[in-house]
């Protein structure tokens, strides 16, 4: 059974998994980053405190975060079909993955940005900085290490979710593991896919942590 077709299928699965994970995380940040920034600014200790806006965003994130991914996957199928044209395959899976990643990313970004000391923000305000300058040049720049560590965690989580989508034919390694390992009792194939998933997570984890370390100037070189 370890012929060329099988190996090619596994490699394709690996590529599909990376494709889904990276693209969904990217779109997740397109939604989640502004969300996290908005949460940071509008919270009571932020520079534009607004109880109403914060409360709405906060509740919205809590609700979306509490939907189990497998259920979200099924719940948003009509939307997935509208956007991607079908509900199976790796491209279609990007839709629910993005929706699951965005609120998680919002929270991660919020907690990273809130680590930036109030003193630095106060200093920037005392220099007459605009809000956008504070967001990009102070908050995001100062929190870069924490943001990268957060992104690494998000990637791992999204990769895990992408494997879950295999249940409904979502493509990628998870899909292969379910089709061969579960439906055909080919434990060998399942174990190999598992190894590949572990390796993929390790790779992203290692790369993310390395980038975070290189970009951190807070510790003595």
């Amino acid at each position: 059974m370890w012929n060329e077709t099988m190996i090619r299928m596994l490699l394709n699965g690996l590529c599909d998994t990376f494709y889904m994970t990276l693209v969904s995380t990217f779109f997740g940040y397109v939604i989640g980053l502004p969300l996290g920034i908005a949460l940071t600014l509008t919270d009571s200790g932020g520079i534009m405190p607004n109880k109403g806006v914060y409360r709405i965003l906060d509740v919205f994130i809590n609700i979306t975060r509490s939907i189990p991914f497998l259920i979200l996957l099924i719940l948003v199928m009509p939307l997935t079909k509208m956007i991607a044209g079908k509900t199976y395959g790796s491209t279609a899976t990007i839709v629910p993955l993005t929706l699951a990643a965005a609120p998680l990313i919002g929270r991660m970004v919020e907690s990273s940005l809130k680590e930036v000391g109030h003193g630095v923000i106060e200093a920037a305000l005392s220099m007459g900085a605009k809000t956008e300058t504070i967001v990009f040049k102070v908050l995001i720049s100062e929190a870069r290490t924490s943001l990268l560590v957060g992104a690494t965690i998000v990637l791992g989580t999204v990769l895990g979710y992408s494997a879950m989508a295999g249940v409904i034919g979502g493509g990628g390694l998870g899909d292969i593991a379910i089709r061969f390992g579960y439906y055909r009792y080919e434990t060998g194939v399942m174990l190999v896919t598992l190894l590949l998933i572990v390796a993929a997570v390790q790779l992203m984890q290692g790369a993310g942590m390395l980038a975070a370390k290189i970009l951190d100037h807070r510790k003595q070189a």
């Binding site: 000391g117 003193g119 630095v120 106060e122 200093a123 305000l125 005392s126 220099m127 007459g128 900085a129 605009k130 040049k137 102070v138 720049s141 100062e142 870069r144 970009l215 951190d216 100037h217 807070r218």
Partner: peptide, 23 residues
Amino acid sequence: QLRLCRQKIGMIFQHFNLLEQLN
């Protein structure tokens, strides 16, 4: 106007408040 005015009022702090990620 306040922002522009603040640019002419300098402030230094007990804990310096430098940007740690910038040289």
